[in-house]
Design a protein around this nucleic acid. Structure first.
Lengths: 135, 135
DNA sequence: CAGAATCCTCAAGGATACTG
DNA sequence: CAGTATCCTTGAGGATTCTG
């Protein structure tokens, strides 16, 4: 950080620097959970455990491999559990963990923001593109 | 959606289906704002407007091109404004908009979750990897 | 100083097919 | 049914250079 920034940050108690540090620490975690399918899968599993192909059918557009990868990552992160059922042929049931559940609330807040402001973003884009074309 | 799912969802008022639909509508918006740098830039701009290279120095690891692209996207989405200063040589100042500010709160909640549960995720990974190696 | 244009590579994610 | 392995495409992002 440059000296000017240090002085400025010192004057304000280093607020921005602290915020950036927090964000930097949070990012590795967010990267784990913010991919295309993670939250959709958690949403499906929230009301009740489901098996591989049940999840796949619910989600619609997901690939076999993408779902397998996502579920493995979720299990590794402790957000879902994986249980092999003693059936024939073999069946596997996935269930959400308390940790996975706890993620849903903050994420829904972000989704709420997205839904509320979707129109503003679109308007801004239209205005921007129109100005671009005119200029 | 398959018939079984329709029946299940009807029994619960289609809660999961609705949640998935909301998430699907929210995703395009989230994709715009959830990239590597967007939130970091907004954090820097939050206390006061800054110029291109000021932002760049504050962020540290970012590339010239990456910052240029990110700022353009932010401007297009109406999250920051871009003002050319009548100086010599030319200077450009970026400032956060109210819409951009409104994004910070929900995002900080998510960051809060990430910071609080970072340890649990790591523990889960360690346990998973150990079990994997043993089995 | 800010930004546009160009080139490059590298890894995520899809399609397919095989195994237990 | 669930999972793994292989191949392949594509595009995001970095490095570099040029301009106003």
């Amino acid at each position: 950080m440059h000296s000017v920034d240090i002085i400025e940050d010192t004057c304000r108690g280093g607020a921005v620097g602290q915020a950036l540090a927090d964000l930097a620490r949070a990012r590795p975690v967010l990267d784990k959970i913010a991919d295309k399918w993670t939250v959709l899968i958690l949403t499906v599993l929230c009301p009740k455990p489901s098996r591989f192909n049940q999840i796949k059918h619910r989600l619609g557009g997901i690939t076999h491999k993408a779902l397998a990868d996502a579920l493995k990552r979720l299990e590794r992160n402790g957000l879902v559990t994986r249980t092999v059922l003693p059936t024939q042929p073999v069946g596997v049931e996935y269930a959400i963990t308390p940790l996975g559940s706890s993620l849903r609330q903050p994420f829904e807040q972000l989704c709420g923001w997205a839904l509320v402001h979707a129109g503003e973003l679109e308007d801004a884009q239209l205005a921007y593109d129109r100005a671009k074309e005119a200029g």
